[in-house]
Amino acid sequence: MNEQHVPERRLSDEARARRRTELMAAVRADDRQPRRWVAPVAAAAVVAGLVGGGYAVGRTGDDEPASTNLDVAGSGSASTASTGPSGAPSPSSSEDPEPECEATTLSPEQEMRERMEDPLWEDPVIAPVLRSYRDVLVQHLDPQDEHLERKPSNVQTSGIPGCDFDALGTKLGWSVPGEGGLGMVQIEVGTSARGSQVELSFGGWRQVDEPRLPDGVTRAREVHNGDVTAVLVVRDDGVAVGIIADPLFGNNSTTGVTGFGFGVADLLAAAADPALALPQ
């Protein structure tokens, strides 16, 4: 194949100039618009229940509002992915001259078909964010990078259809060399801990004592359920991060791993990492 001639050409001057004009016109027009999330999020909200054990859940009565500088609509608002009003104003709508969201015109079935063809975790905006989540997990939980699944292949989200979302996460497999089983580390980054998937997965949460709180963390909770451990952290900037370490990745395996090489302190440190953020 290396000896094969692969054709190459330059753009014609006419095409180069025309495409440049079109591009710059579009870019300048876009630059005058407020940045917002539209299509991927709409699809995410609709099909969240289909991918990777995804979910979409309403956030009501939240007592842990996120920071207003997150640039995420729907922060701390009541939002239900499948039934929420597409044009519902965000809490910051009074400050935003253009609060309306662009709702999808596709039916849920069409959305599902589109999304199955074009997985959200491969979306050019979301994929790098999920990879950044993995990077943080590797840094704190798997510094040799020998256990965590290399590439996110699922996504969990919640938010208002057609608008921004208020939580994004993924589940990564955790393997142990020499073992045939598969564990799971799930991470969720959101605007609120209350009603998050991680929180709703367990009862019996306990507050983490002040001395154990990592820097930059306002409060944290932990729970142990058999071999499963989870932490839920609310950072000083309002971002909520939940992490679950489950020795059995039930979606993908019937056999778990014998254990993890990290403890609760590592999970808390990972959750507190300021690199974890929602897409802008």
């Binding site: 591009l23 579009a26 876009d30 050019p124 905006v125």
Partner: peptide
Amino acid sequence: MAAAFLEVWRV
């Protein structure tokens, strides 16, 4: 290519 550069701006 044109679509790709638009996407580059978006992301």
